[in-house]
Amino acid sequence: MKSEVIKARDIVTSFGETVIHDKLNLTVNRGEIYGILGESGSGKTLLLKEMIMLHKPTSGHITILGNELSNIDYQNAQKLRREWGILFQFGALFTSLTVAENIELQLKEYTDIDKRMRDELVKTKISMVGLPIRAGGLYPSELSGGMIKRAALARALAMDPKLLFLDEPTSGLDPIGARNFDSLILELKELLGITVVMITHDLDTIYSIVDRFCVLADKHVVAEGTLESVIEADHPFVERFFKNDYAKRRLEYGGR
């Protein structure tokens, strides 16, 4: 089944004279892990913000789960917001709430399920992302960087989203933690059938779990597709990123 979850067409973003995106296109299919790659300042995070309705593109159309974002009304926007989960780069947990309360928040506001069931769900999510249960009673300021990422992922998963946005999920984690995080995302994708869109610089992540990805450079998507097809692309950034010594060695040892 190949259906489009996200379709971005002719996205233009500019701040005054500065043009960040110039007629950019990309497509994310259902059930895949889709990576967004690009240099610092190429507007990756901005693109993500446009997809999650935090920023309006100057022009162009983004369609997510059948909703056209440029003319979506408030009701549908609110409904759409419950269907996705977002992991911000630095977690963005609410500091005045414990981890468990952070995860519970949407369940409490948007559904009628009772406290017992909510607790059950919260505990499952905490355990699923690999945190110890006692972490549920802690405040974000008492957690380490890696734990914050996990807790934030648990919060993103609270409503069983169909679509998960991750902003640099493995940045700031140690290599082992990063690989564990990768396999966790892969497991979630396979078992829960979630579509994942992630911004990443991590070569290992791209080699091991990303199904398709796009490369942002020069205000455009310069390459989109599977690893094999992107590497073929003829662009200086792709060259620099994938044809350096480290990447070559990494590729020889194989992906999956």
Binding site: K123, T124, I133, G136, L192, G193
Partner: peptide
């Protein structure tokens, strides 16, 4: 099959401990 996999995933992560509350 997919439902069973999901069931197994959740079963593996079912926890009986309570979240500590202060």
């Amino acid at each position: 099959k997919a439902q069973e996999r999901m069931f197994r995933l959740l079963l593996a992560h079912k926890v009986d401990d309570l979240i500590p509350k202060v």
